[in-house]
Design a protein around this nucleic acid. Structure first.
Lengths: 138, 138
DNA sequence: ATAATAAATAAAAATGATTGTTAATTACGG
DNA sequence: CCGTAATTAACAATCATTTTTATTTATTAT
């Protein structure tokens, strides 16, 4: 995810409008490492724009995803999570409180599919989920 | 997941009844490497027991999960998938057809969190999702 | 600036997966 | 067999998300 100036240019270059809602949703996500759900984002935006609708949150998150500004993912949960960090990284999920921590270690030199897989599958990337318990829940 | 005889004993030891529906759902899952959703299981069971209800499928899958007979997971999808193989293994997901392949390589010697994580998190296991394209979709 | 207009928004309804409720049915110990 | 508690099927409810529609707003050209 880039700066808000960069986002503004990206939106414009796609013929999209610069709206206060979009900017605020972007700001909520910017440098956010809490992996919020759509509802989490909604609550944060609502504090500043009480009239904002859930529809706008969903639509904007989808827009940002399409523009490559956020990554959407699910981890054994019934809702989607959004991560402004679109660089390759991994997650550690606390089985108790469901908090998601970022893991920036580069495992790519050690994580490769066996050769016989090459005829069946082309790998574009991989994602590791570490399950366990966080400090607070221990 | 064990044999049907083993399941029978497990159910009995938990004071649970041996019903045709439970046995059929188990059979559908047994040695099944297609990672079916609840709906997939429902369709398969319905062929033999046309009167079976979705409720029973969901309840039974939950029961089997509680008994440790199946593993439930989600991968960037809006439905849960069920895997009778509860041993540690990983998945390769085709971005096009969403088919999930099993990856039995043991990455545990090479996938460890950095030491500074030890004070923040206790790892109980990890799961790798390989994203890419399968043979048929290539 | 201002009006035209295409895009975005809010509100409301719809959808799809899953869960809860209830009354009827069934497995199984006595 | 019978009684009873567990399980089932049918149905309603819920929750996250998507779609629809009418209104509002950001932008572009006047």
């Amino acid at each position: 995810m880039e700066t808000i100036e960069k986002l503004t240019k990206t939106l414009r270059s796609h013929g999209m409008k610069i709206t206060p809602q979009r900017l605020m949703i972007f700001k909520v996500l910017e440098n956010n490492t809490s992996h919020p759900s759509a509802e989490d984002v909604y609550k944060r935006v609502k504090k500043v724009y009480p009239a904002v609708s859930f529809t706008t949150i969903y639509k904007t998150l989808e827009t940002l995803r399409t523009l490559g500004e956020v990554r959407e993912f699910t981890i054994d949960d019934d809702r989607k999570h959004y991560d402004p960090n679109t660089n390759t990284h991994h997650h550690a999920i606390c089985s108790t409180c469901k908090k998601i921590l970022d893991v920036f270690e580069d495992f790519s030199p050690h994580v490769k599919l066996p050769d016989f897989f090459k005829k069946d599958y082309t790998v574009s990337g991989f994602q590791i989920s570490f399950f366990g318990t966080c400090k607070e829940c221990n």
